[in-house]
Amino acid sequence: MSLLAVVISYLIGSIPFGFLLARLLKGIDIREHGSGNIGATNVWRTLGPVPGLAVLLLDMGKGVAAVMLGRQLGGAETELLAALGVLCGHSWPVFLSFRGGKIIATGAGVVLAVSPVTVLVALAVWLITVGISRYVSLGSMLAAISVPVTMAVLKMGGAYILFGVLLAIFAIYKHRPNIKRIMDGTEFKVGKGRRD
């Protein structure tokens, strides 16, 4: 059942909502615009807030759906394996030649399903960081780092904390280009034009 949950979750994660919505609304390949990413942030910057918010909610929904599926097919271990599956699907979608998003929205959906308190803390970290630095990417990375810390404070158990650590590492890895641009001073800042 665990393997089935992982495979189905990977396929769920592979559904490229950002790509599909950009095709539907504007007839464009979102990968050829802005940062080239299929996630909510690039859709927001390229198509506007309404499509961006729609992609955010849909990508979060993938994370929630995967955890719920894993929970139905098994216990805590299965739901966490399903969570990893959906994150891998979003990041390396089979439907887009394995070129996907940065897992932040889908990861938020996963954490929401696993621990609503943890996702609220992560949201607060994101809002504070973006409010001070105006870097969405930095806010996303720090929010991801807050996940295992909050899970540890909540004493959620070793498996969940380990998952949180993997999520944070995964998020930082996917943001390598953003880290370089932050260090170079060329990273997009909220309110400073359109560039990721």
Rank of each mutant, 00 (worst) to 15 (best):
H33G: 09
M68K: 01
F163T: 15
G109E: 05
L154V: 15
I15M: 05
M151D: 15
I104G: 08
S137A: 15
L112H: 01
C88F: 15
M141G: 04
V50N: 08
E32N: 06
S137M: 07
V130S: 05
I15V: 06
P116R: 05
R71F: 05
K26Q: 12
T186K: 04
S2P: 12
Y135D: 09
G61F: 01
G89M: 03
K26T: 02
G74H: 02
V121F: 08
L80V: 02
S133E: 06
V6E: 05
L84D: 05
G70V: 07
L120P: 03
F17S: 07
A108S: 15
W92K: 10
M1T: 08
G39H: 03
Q72I: 06
K155F: 09
K189L: 13
R195T: 09
M60Y: 00
F19A: 02
L24V: 05
M156H: 07
V190N: 04
T41S: 08
R176G: 06
L11P: 02
M183L: 15
P51R: 08
P51N: 06
I172N: 04
Y160A: 11
G52P: 01
G191I: 05
L154T: 07
G70K: 00
M183W: 04
P116A: 09
D59G: 10
I8R: 02
V50D: 09
I38S: 02
A66C: 07
L112S: 11
G13F: 06
L120C: 09
R71H: 12
M60W: 00
V7M: 08
C88W: 05
K155Q: 12
T186A: 04
I132H: 06
A113Y: 00
V55I: 08
A54Q: 06
V147E: 05
K62Q: 07
V147C: 09
L123Y: 01
R45W: 03
P148Y: 06
R23A: 12
L81H: 01
G63H: 00
I182Q: 04
E79D: 14
V117L: 12
D196E: 12
V114L: 14
G36R: 04
V117C: 07
L142D: 06
V114K: 10
A143L: 04
I28V: 10
A82P: 13
L20M: 14
M156W: 01
G74Q: 03
G52W: 11
P177N: 12
A54D: 10
L112T: 07
